[in-house]
């Protein structure tokens, strides 16, 4: 009897062992399968680096004791000595653009460059100049009597659109810069530089000689979208 019980226990134990083994084998088969596919290709986006320079040529323009002149005369103003008593002339400056890239696409020798758009603006600083002047009677010249004329510094080709019409300060488009006007918008298709020449004069239709009046600007450049 005891022998039979022992054999029965051994039989049940064997059955359980086999069952356990089957479970372990099946479970181990699927639990052991995991997969990792490791990529080798780099997926990269990178921006360009823009170096934009604005270089001024000595002094700016400051119209004082200027007389009304025609546009034809104004367009051809040349630099004269301050000793002549008449400040005229022009203001030269240069803008340069240089774009660097992180890498070159294998399919292209040079990355396709999006144009770099920029705006030349002039900021009215007349009030500051008047405040700094000791002459108490100096007044601000109305912008409708201030002619603004921008040309290429090399060829002196007009960049104001209409060759026959020189705009006044008042008629220029307001810039996004505070207290400023947009003189010109351009773009660089590729790395390079461009020279500019700015002239300003008193419009021929200005007739009020009752006071000393002045008008002053500072030129600036910024990139735009």
């Amino acid at each position: 009897m005891e022998e039979q019980q022992k054999k029965a226990r051994e039989f049940v134990f064997s059955l359980l062992s086999i069952a356990f083994l089957i479970v372990v084998v099946l479970g181990a088969t699927y639990a052991a399968f995991s997969y990792t596919g490791v990529g080798s290709a780099d997926n990269t986006i990178s921006t360009s680096k823009l170096t934009f320079e604005y270089i001024e040529d000595r002094n700016g323009i400051n119209l004082v004791n200027a007389y009304p002149i025609s546009d034809e005369v104004g367009k051809n103003l040349i630099q004269t000595n301050e000793d002549d008593g008449i400040l005229s002339g022009y203001f030269d400056f240069t803008i340069s653009s240089n774009i660097e890239y992180a890498f070159t696409n294998e399919d292209e020798e040079v990355p396709v460059q999006d144009p770099v758009h920029y705006e030349i603006y002039a900021k009215d600083i007349t009030d500051e100049v008047i405040a700094s002047e000791s002459e108490q009677s100096l007044e601000k010249l109305d912008g409708q009597y201030v002619k603004v004329y921008l040309t290429s510094g090399d060829s002196e080709e007009s960049l104001m659109g209409d060759e026959d019409t020189v705009p006044t300060w008042s008629s220029l488009e307001d810039s996004t810069e505070e207290n400023s006007k947009t003189i010109y918008k351009g773009s660089f298709e590729e790395n390079g530089s461009q020279n500019f020449r700015l002239r300003m004069w008193v419009a021929q239709n200005y007739t009020d000689g009752s006071a000393h009046r002045t008008f002053a600007v500072k030129v600036g450049v910024k990139t735009i979208k």
Binding site: F33, Y35, T36, N43, K49, F52
Partner: peptide, 16 residues
Amino acid sequence: PTNLQAFTVKVNVYGK
């Protein structure tokens, strides 16, 4: 605009 900026990823696949 004063710096070169970049972002790179690789793709992996995981299965269990």
